[in-house]
Amino acid sequence: MTSADDTTPENERPEDESAQPADAAEQAASAGDAPEGDPLEALDFEPSEEASEDAAVLAAKAEAAEHLDALQRERASFTNYRNRAVRDNAAARTQGVQDVLAGLLPVLDDIERARQHGELTGPFVAISDKLDGALAKFEIERFGAVGDEFDPNLHEALMHSTDPEATSSTVNIVIEPGYRIGERVVRAARVSVVGPE
């Protein structure tokens, strides 16, 4: 025998009982058993805009410092290279002048001997003066004269004599004058020296 309850269609039955626990949880939450809202909302896990800007500025400053350091190193390297090149050029120039002077020494010695003996006359005097002027342009200096104090760094004594009246060793004859470029002696003056007994 069928009861009235059994004739109720299934679609008219009350909602499934499995939904009731979810409704109960919602009711409990609304009743105050669980805190309102998400408790993690108050925590700030995302970096703020200001913090991200600070990080970008720090990164840019670090990169700028690296570039500045690299630039300073390059500049120091270039300055050292330039100074070395200037020194090398000056040394090469001096060496070139010295080589030319060494080749001209026999000619210069002949001209000096002719001058000492009074044989340098006429147009040769003008030529000799021009040659001396050209040497001066390259800072070539002739040295060694009678009466100079003997200096072994500047003079090469080929002869030595004594004089009871002499108080120090001096040059009494210049056999061949010396030549120097600036402070560098290319050839010492070859001289005769007189000194005390």
Rank of each mutant, 00 (worst) to 15 (best):
A22D: 00
A22H: 03
A22T: 02
D23G: 13
A24K: 13
A25D: 03
E26L: 09
E26C: 01
A28S: 06
A34P: 00
G37E: 07
P39C: 07
P39L: 05
L40A: 14
L40K: 13
L40D: 12
L40S: 13
A42E: 08
A42V: 08
D44C: 00
F45E: 11
E46Y: 01
E46Q: 04
P47E: 09
P47M: 04
S48K: 05
S48W: 00
E49L: 06
E50A: 03
E50I: 01
D54C: 00
D54T: 06
A55E: 15
A55F: 07
A55Q: 14
A55P: 05
V57W: 13
L58K: 12
L58E: 14
L58I: 08
A59K: 09
A59D: 14
A60N: 11
K61S: 07
K61R: 12
A62Y: 01
E63A: 15
A64D: 11
A64N: 11
A65C: 09
A65G: 14
E66H: 13
H67K: 14
L68K: 11
L68P: 03
L68M: 05
L71Q: 12
Q72E: 13
R73Y: 08
R75D: 03
R75S: 05
A76Y: 02
S77F: 02
F78M: 12
F78G: 06
Y81P: 00
Y81H: 12
R82A: 09
N83H: 09
N83I: 04
N83E: 11
R84S: 11
V86S: 07
V86C: 03
N89Y: 03
A92I: 06
R93E: 11
D99Q: 07
L101H: 11
L101N: 10
A102Q: 10
G103F: 07
G103D: 14
L105W: 08
P106M: 08
L108G: 14
L108D: 12
E112R: 13
E112A: 15
R113D: 06
A114I: 09
Q116V: 04
H117P: 01
H117D: 05
G118P: 06
G118T: 05
E119C: 02
E119L: 05
T121W: 02
T121E: 07
G122Y: 04
P123R: 08
P123D: 10
F124N: 15
V125W: 04
